[in-house]
Design a binder for these strands. Structure first.
Lengths: 330, 330
DNA sequence: AATCACGATGGAAAGGGTTGCATAGATTCC
DNA sequence: GGAATCTATGCAACCCTTTCCATCGTGATT
């Protein structure tokens, strides 16, 4: 190294010198499982505080092979859903002395794989938020890493998801209780795990005679706008949208067509985003995002401890009734 | 180290052994400025590719003191404005082989300082997106680090901001051109640098006799909702909101009051968020977010090269006229 | 032909922790 | 009381890369 002003950097050697003990003793005193007397530990901790010591993560990583950081793969941070995942993951990780490398893949599978290959050696494991794309290539790129899937299941890997089936069921029940019989679903992209799951749940809940299937839509808001006319023509009196943005698109176009919501059409969103409460007070199935992210961090850390094979967590979803659904008018 | 399965890890030693040269030669061949023959470099690069070598960042950091990573401080990732900053920063950083540690401070100055203290030794420098809070304590905590302020100026530090003054001026001119005379501004929090700046620009652009100052509002959307009645009572026929969310709040309440937008009131937002085009097609002053973040990364990297003292970049803002503004009706 | 300069390379130390092994001192047990 | 056990500590190797310094060969210069 040499040249650089390494000034100010307090190391365990400084602490050792200050206390007249060896560096190994200091190191042990500073690591949770270390074998040192309570008295020594106390003195070391005191000195560390006094000298404002911070462990050098590069040195520790080099020595232990553990990076103390995790990679988070998200398709698009602009999407508030993923932004919240990032927020939750990052806060939890920070609280257990890990940091989060975020890779925004701009919804490209290509960039996704690239990011994984890029980071695989610099992180201990991955949190993978990749709703789109085929299973096999993803699994292939994750081979050899420790990874937890978030909001998607991938056979063989641990995952944290939410109970989409129950969410759909709750929405259907809610609409039925309001007297609706003919119910539509605007499906999301066929390539999305969550979209497929929601559609399947919908088909299970609503008998063929009563259901209307629309979509799939690619761009959520625009797709919702585009589907509104078909929805009106279908004879359905209520609709469950793939997500909140689709719902917002539907509402916008419906109102432009002179159909009021909820009087003329009941609309249920999915995700429970804040944005869905802004212009329209949207009834929506709330999906835990920060909680899911936190759980995923915990799961990953446990997997890194060698604690587990594939384990999975399914978090509850909850229908939040607001003002975009109303009793059927005859 | 020992125990751990360091398997698979290809090091420069492996390349050296493979080629029958020394590790120093390999290292030099792999660093841009290294003094090696073209032929050697070619062979090393070939071997590196063949063996799938990736440099061990921990070891490199330990040796050079450079972390190849930067810390990004944001108040809240759920806010789409900051999410886009994060996205932009992260993508640019990745393209120049740096990674980004994001710290979401949940709008707390306390957590902000804590994050800075926490990360200061693990990153080469900071990108600080901290619109709120006093100058002095922030400057104090950033002392000894290399930092670039983003969307805020802080004397003595380089910054990347956008031309808020021009943005306000464009909005005012637009409204004047539409015939509006009495113009209101709903100000944002007094503790926000950008809010103060916008308000000052507004006061410069609109003479005291013509202007109506409302606010400040704390919570944007709710604040907008709450200010709508005062706006109506003020006699203003047009309003420039502190940001898009405030504008959305205004529009929502105005419409609930039976005042149509833009016929009964012209509303201009600020920031140009996508969300502002969803329910309402909001006229807004667009602020570059990803570009600002990218520039900030570049600026920081240059500062780390020792290239500069405080330099600052001011990016242009641009009024986007949509459907929430209309000619004054007499 | 001897000297110089220079480009390319190798050797080795350094960077800051962690940890296996050895050791010294204290404690326990028969 | 001596041997065995245990605890707390120190020593030193190791993680992987960078970089200073030394070396060696080659071509240029005088």
């Amino acid at each position: 190294m040499t040249v650089r002003a390494r000034a100010g950097r307090v190391t365990i050697h400084d602490i050792a010198a200050d206390l007249g003990v060896s560096v190994s003793t200091v190191s042990r005193a500073l690591t949770p499982g270390g074998n040192v007397s309570v008295e020594t530990r106390r003195r070391v901790e005191e000195a560390a505080g006094r000298l404002d010591y911070r462990t050098n993560r590069a040195a520790r990583s080099l020595s232990t092979g553990r990076m103390h950081s995790i990679g988070l793969i998200v398709p698009d941070l602009r999407d508030p859903f993923f932004a919240e995942v990032a927020k939750g993951a990052q806060m939890r990780a920070r609280s257990v002395d890990h940091s989060v490398y975020i890779a925004d893949t701009d919804r490209s599978a290509e960039l996704e794989f690239e990011a994984i290959d890029m980071m695989r050696r610099d992180v201990d494991g991955f949190l993978v938020c990749a709703p789109l794309g085929a299973d096999e290539p993803l699994r292939e790129h994750l081979r050899g890493t420790t990874a937890v899937m978030v909001h998607r299941e991938l056979a063989g890997l641990p995952s944290v998801t939410s109970d989409l089936d129950s969410g759909i069921a709750q929405a259907v029940q809610h609409l039925r209780a309001l007297g609706h019989r003919r119910i539509a679903h605007v499906a999301g992209p066929e390539s999305s795990w969550g979209a497929r799951r929601r559609r399947a749940a919908f088909e299970r809940e609503v008998a063929e005679a009563d259901r209307v299937l629309l979509g799939p839509v690619a761009d959520p808001f625009e797709g919702g706008v585009a589907m509104a006319d078909a929805l009106l023509a279908s004879g359905a009196t209520a609709v469950i949208a793939y997500n909140d943005l689709v719902a917002l698109g539907l509402v916008t176009r419906l109102r432009a067509r002179g159909v009021s919501v909820p009087e003329g059409m009941s609309v249920v969103g999915f995700d429970g985003l804040d944005v869905a409460t802004l212009a329209t007070s949207l009834t929506s199935v709330s999906v835990p995002r920060q909680v899911a992210a936190r759980s995923a961090v915990d799961l990953l850390l446990r997997a890194l401890e060698g604690d587990a094979g594939p384990a999975s967590i399914v978090l509850p979803t909850q229908l939040i009734v607001r003002d975009s659904t109303a009793p059927l008018r005859l």
